[in-house]
Simulated scan of single mutants.
Amino acid sequence: MTSSERGTRAWLAVLPAMLAAVAVYWATMPAAPVAAKRAAPETSAGPSLAAAAAPGTAQGRAIAVMPSLAGTDVPAGPETDDKGNLRVTRALRTYFDYFLSARHDAGAEALDQQVYDGIRRSVPEPAAGQAWQLWRRYLGYLAEVQPHAARKPMGEPADGALDPGSMQRLRALLASRNAARQRLLPDVAAIWFDDEQAYDDAMLARLDLAAQAGLDPAERQRQLAALDAALPEPLRTARDAGARPQAISDTIAGMQSAGRGTQEIGAALAAAYGAEVAQRYQQQALVEQAWQQRYDDYAARRAQIETFAGLSAQDRRLQLEALRQQAFSSPGEALQAEVMDQAMAARRAARQ
């Protein structure tokens, strides 16, 4: 669920992804929510994004706004119960996460608009309004927990064991996240997050075992096996399935490190994991190549401003900000460019 960070850090093992990734390269953190413009209600359910769509249709606009969803099937959307109210299911969170997975394609307003339109195509009132309000509350929850989840609650232990302070910070982080679920999403918390809660509890128990000095290796292994056996079957299945995206990510990283090109990597992925995985990788590679080209062009223009004599520090900063906004209209892309700028500046400073 969530982005492809490859380290074997112990702290990552207890932070299951909050968003369901549609592909191994799709991330899941939302942009800051803004109010969406209300669209006219639609009564019929829309086709999947895999279907061919004319540019002028709502479906065509969705692909234009969120190109990384092109060629994918939209999960089942909101449903009504026998009284016309919204039926709350785990699948509804998957539906929301599907759109969040493409948040980097567009700003928060466009994302809200796509979800709003999708809801209106799926269900009538009052379920439509209930689904919309649930979406807004879900964004509020993610906006609250995202900054905490982005911070490392602990350092990287050399021997796999965690110090008591790290464990305390991790427990506090998970408790804060669970409290936010109960406060902001009390009506769906159990349906949406119980599996993750069970997984977190099991991972904390595993870390406690790792921290027990002097425990006999055979006894440690026995207790770890018991923890695994106690997990609900869906969690065991999900855990096993989680190894596949990591293996795909490792394959890509290894071949890139060896200097292999996109076509070679795609062929290896197709042979090992199927044509769909290879196609998704190649699509994302094209997106990344286009992004890199845009960034390189922007960086060349940025260097001209940075080296231009006669500018005050304030004027230089304002021109750099204007250039970034001009080159990257999406707030998410502008932020990504700013982060890369900072990384490049830090690299230059380290060489001096």
Rank of each mutant, 00 (worst) to 15 (best):
D82P: 05
E79D: 14
G60F: 05
L92Y: 00
P55K: 02
T80P: 10
T57N: 14
R93K: 13
A50I: 13
G77D: 05
K83W: 15
M66Y: 07
L100C: 14
V88R: 11
E42T: 15
L49K: 03
A70E: 10
A50T: 07
N85H: 04
M66T: 08
A52Y: 01
D73G: 10
A58K: 07
L100I: 10
L100F: 10
F99L: 09
F96H: 04
A39K: 10
M66V: 09
S48W: 08
T94C: 06
S68C: 12
A40C: 01
L86C: 09
L92K: 04
S44I: 08
T72Q: 02
E42K: 14
S44P: 10
K37Y: 10
A58R: 13
L92D: 14
A62M: 13
A54S: 12
Y98L: 14
A52P: 12
D81H: 00
S68R: 08
R38E: 08
A36R: 08
A40F: 00
A40I: 09
A54T: 10
G60R: 05
Q59M: 15
G71T: 02
V88S: 04
G84E: 12
P67A: 04
P78I: 08
S48N: 10
A53P: 01
F99S: 11
K83S: 13
A53V: 00
R93S: 07
G56T: 13
S48V: 02
Y95K: 14
F99C: 15
A39F: 01
T57V: 15
V65I: 07
E42C: 15
A54M: 12
L100N: 09
R90A: 12
T94P: 15
A53T: 03
M66L: 14
M66I: 13
A45H: 02
R90S: 07
T72R: 07
A51S: 12
D81N: 07
Q59F: 08
V65H: 06
A76R: 15
T57G: 07
T89L: 03
G71M: 05
T89E: 11
R87K: 05
G60M: 09
P75D: 01
K83M: 15
R87V: 06
A51M: 09
A62R: 08
N85C: 03
R90P: 11
S68A: 02
T89A: 10
Q59C: 15
V74C: 07
R90E: 13
G56W: 03
S44L: 11
F96K: 09
R61D: 11
A76M: 13
A50R: 04
D82M: 03
A45E: 01
K83R: 14
G46F: 07
P47A: 01
E79S: 14
Y98A: 09
L49G: 02
A35F: 02
D97R: 05
V74D: 09
D82V: 12
S68I: 12
L86E: 02
A53D: 02
L49P: 07
E42R: 13
Y98E: 11
A50F: 11
G46P: 07
G60T: 05
A36I: 14
P55H: 00
A91S: 08
V65S: 11
Y98P: 15
D82K: 06
T80R: 08
D73A: 06
F96Y: 01
S48D: 03
D97F: 02
N85I: 00
R38G: 07
T57D: 03
A50Q: 00
G77Y: 05
G77W: 00
N85D: 08
L69K: 03
I63Y: 07
L92Q: 09
N85M: 04
A54V: 02
R93N: 08
